[in-house]
């Protein structure tokens, strides 16, 4: 084992860590499709998760008794390690390997954060504001869509931000079950003992997560002009 490790280490030191010529040659064939595939996986997953979490969050914020079981169930999903969840999904008949299994897993991971932030966001709307809206003659439906959701939006976007960063990270693992994306470069690089692919995949995935984080943070601040001066970590 020791000698194998040494041989591998020497081999990887022998070649340059980043082979720029390879990057230039395979930019269109390997790197661009991986980036597009990664964005596709992440975007579709967060969109589906949001489409589930918004109605569930709204219902749960009304029927409070349903909140603890929803939190426990989604919390359980969130705790299961991603490679384990992917492995379990793959052996379920009708799912198998491929992007669909990855998207199911990514949706499962997003639910906890998204539902929690929808509920917290709606809860943060002051009771006086809702009373005022009711006093102005708004119906319950109008109060929900014109008062509560707009005011809850910054908190909901904060949830989307956390979910997106998480999903971009976990999506890399999806390549192991043929989901595509930047993880493909990482796994290919490991298999072929070609550090350039590993580094390109890892660096691009990190960059994508950081950029998504900053963009959604900017959106969150923009939606919350009254709190722009207040700084802090959430």
């Amino acid at each position: 084992m020791g000698s194998i490790q040494l041989a591998l280490l020497l081999q990887s030191l022998d070649q340059q860590l980043v082979d720029w010529a390879w990057i230039r040659q395979n930019y269109r064939e390997d790197i661009v499709p991986a980036v597009i595939g990664h964005i596709y996986l992440s975007f579709v997953s967060v969109a589906i998760a949001l489409a589930i979490s918004l109605p569930v969050g709204i219902i749960v914020s009304r029927y409070r008794k349903a909140y603890p079981p929803v939190t426990i169930l989604t919390g359980l999903l969130y705790t299961i390690p991603s490679l384990a969840l992917l492995a379990i999904l793959v052996v379920i008949p009708g799912i198998g390997v491929g992007p669909n299994a990855v998207i199911i897993a990514l949706v499962a991971y997003s639910l906890l954060v998204l539902i929690r932030n929808v509920v917290t966001g709606i809860d943060s709307v002051p009771a006086e504001t809702i009373d005022a809206a009711r006093g102005m003659g708004l119906t319950e439906r109008q109060i929900l869509f014109k008062v509560e959701i707009p005011l809850a939006l910054p908190v909901i976007v904060a949830g989307i931000r956390i979910a997106t960063v998480t999903v971009i990270g976990i999506a890399t693992i999806g390549a192991y079950i043929a989901g595509g994306g930047l993880g493909q470069l990482i796994f290919d690089g490991i298999d072929q003992n070609f550090p350039t692919k590993v580094i390109v995949g890892a660096v691009l995935a990190t960059a994508m997560a950081v950029v998504a984080d900053l963009l959604l943070l900017a959106l969150e601040r923009y939606l919350r002009p009254w709190a722009r001066r207040v700084r802090g970590a959430s």
């Binding site: 990887s12 860590l17 990270g169 693992i173 990190t206 997560a209 970590a233």
Partner: peptide, 21 residues
């Protein structure tokens, strides 16, 4: 915050070319 955004597979994979198996 930036550290939290780094995907875990990316971190582990990056250890490979620099630190080995």
């Amino acid at each position: 915050n930036i550290g939290r955004a780094v995907p875990s597979l990316a971190l582990l994979a990056l250890a490979l070319p620099f630190l080995g198996f």
